[in-house]
Design a protein around this nucleic acid. Structure first.
Length: 485
DNA sequence: TGTTATT
């Protein structure tokens, strides 16, 4: 709760800064008093309440300056309306000044027009509101309350200790520990966080303040959004991304294709149910259903995703256009490369450097298709701040989940997803990362919403050559079964 | 061969 309030305020400050920079002519609100010198390391950020709404920073400054040099003073404004919220954050350069100001002013004086006396006290953010409850993660699932207690006892009096358990009573590998004071809790964090790795745990012990109610709600909401299946291409892609791509895939798969007399193309990929759904989405989005020429590279636009979540626009991709390097060379894709869109594997240290925020994807799109009559929906709805939605790792139904090995080192979740988008609706994609090095382990998972998409993907992509390696694409091994491959 | 879990 406290943290949210503070981050909100911080965002406002940033916004105000941005606005004042962007429009120097504007006669908008006065800029906050900027930090103009150093503050003490132990400076206290004060919350000031019961401020008349007609007083701005410059009006408040004299009142507070008598206690010392001000480092920063910011009146809180409503994020959208810019309305004065009747309170401010105040930081003195010296910790001492803050204490003096609090003593002299808090509840001691009532500003003109206010019914209640001014509030001057450390901002919630300063103490996390006396937080004393810890979340403990990366426990061994065998560890009981008693074990956890033993671990934390040295740091203070423990009011409460609970190991979180599933419905079956099995530990989830985490716990809550409530100390009698914030200080004790803090000490435990300091001493224990990351200090050891429990046997069987995948990472070192996590000890942090537990989520506040607000944070919990937020997490819940995020989970719910995840459940909506945002990453279903029919929702996220205004048009088919892959006609030329599919052709290239076909070329790679000569063994598959040579026996098919071309009939494979139609039921398999190019006119798959997924394809039709995407066209459906095109008209739903009000985007002209421009005919797609299967062989033309110009109809393989960057994958620009926007999620159809009420109130949110969630760009999920990055302008990464061509997805897969085609060592054999494909005219259409070479066109893409020539546009500088997919500089892989040619140069640049890493694929990561070719990833862009969604909006640069828009630019690339327009640069690439100057005459296109198509307007990606992101063009018209760029307003809300992008909220990066963490993809939740969902396994699909049996037979829908692929295990992919020998991925390029540079591939992340989204590259993996984009590589497999042509074959159907993807529920999730996950590249495994080495925790220590943050490097891909070069394998991952892709889940489709139906088994035939998964089969199509296997047919098309198993053995697909990338650089020196060939992809291994199989159904994911079911949890229980003994290694069938 | 789905890795971290928030009462």
């Amino acid at each position: 709760m406290a943290r949210l309030t503070e981050s909100e305020a911080r965002r406002q400050q940033q916004q105000q800064l941005l606005q004042s920079r962007a429009s120097p002519m504007s006669s908008g609100p006065e800029p906050p008093v900027q930090p103009d010198s150093m503050k003490d390391l132990d400076a206290i950020k004060l919350f000031v309440g019961q401020i008349p709404r007609n007083l701005e920073e410059k009006d408040l400054k004299p009142l507070f300056e008598q206690f010392g040099k001000i480092y920063e003073l910011t009146v809180l404004k409503d994020r959208y309306t810019g309305m004065h919220k009747g309170c401010a954050f105040l930081t003195y350069c010296a910790r001492d000044s803050a204490i003096k100001a609090q003593t002299a002013l808090h509840e001691q004086k009532t500003l003109p027009g206010m019914a209640r006396p001014i509030q001057v006290k450390p901002a919630d953010s300063e103490s996390r509101g006396g937080d004393r409850k810890l979340f403990v993660g990366m426990l061994n699932k065998q560890q009981s309350e008693e074990d956890v207690l033993r671990l934390f006892q040295p740091f203070g009096v423990i009011d409460e200790c609970t190991v979180l358990r599933g419905p079956d009573g099995n530990s989830k590998g985490c716990a809550f520990v409530k100390f009698s004071s914030h200080t004790e809790a803090q000490a435990a964090i300091h001493a224990l966080h990351g200090s050891q790795t429990m046997p069987g745990a995948s990472s070192s012990l996590v000890v942090k303040f537990a989520d506040t109610d607000k944070e919990r709600t937020l997490r819940r909401m995020q989970q719910m959004v995840g459940q909506l299946g945002i990453f279903t291409p029919s929702l996220t892609l205004p048009f088919s991304p892959y006609s030329a791509y599919a052709q290239a895939l076909m070329q790679q798969q000569t063994t598959v294709l040579s026996t098919s007399h071309g009939s494979y193309l139609s039921p398999g990929v190019a006119f798959s149910p997924c394809h039709i759904q995407q066209i459906g989405a095109v008209s739903l989005n009000g985007i002209p259903a421009t005919p797609i020429a299967p062989a033309s590279g110009l109809h393989s636009p960057p994958l620009l995703g926007t999620a159809a979540v009420p109130g949110l626009v969630t760009p999920i991709t990055n302008g990464f256009a061509g997805v897969v390097p085609f060592p054999g060379g494909h005219p259409a894709l070479e066109t893409v490369y020539a546009n500088g869109l997919v500089p892989y594997p040619a140069q640049s240290p890493s694929m990561a450097e070719t990833l862009h925020p969604a909006f640069s994807g828009v630019q690339q799109y327009t640069a690439m298709y100057p005459t296109a009559a198509i307007t990606p929906i992101a063009h018209s709805v760029p307003q809300p701040p992008p909220i990066i939605q963490q993809q939740q790792q969902r396994e699909g139904p049996e037979g829908c989940n692929l295990f992919i090995y020998h991925l390029p080192q540079e591939f992340g979740d989204s590259e993996l997803m984009q590589m497999f988008l042509p074959f159907g609706n993807i529920i999730s994609s996950k590249v495994f990362m080495d925790r220590a090095t943050n490097q891909s382990k070069c394998f991952g998972f892709v889940s489709f919403d139906n088994p035939s998409s998964a089969q199509t993907a296997i047919q098309a992509m198993n053995g697909f050559q990338i650089g020196m390696k060939r992809l291994k694409v199989q159904l994911k091994r079911p949890k229980d079964a003994s290694h069938p491959y």
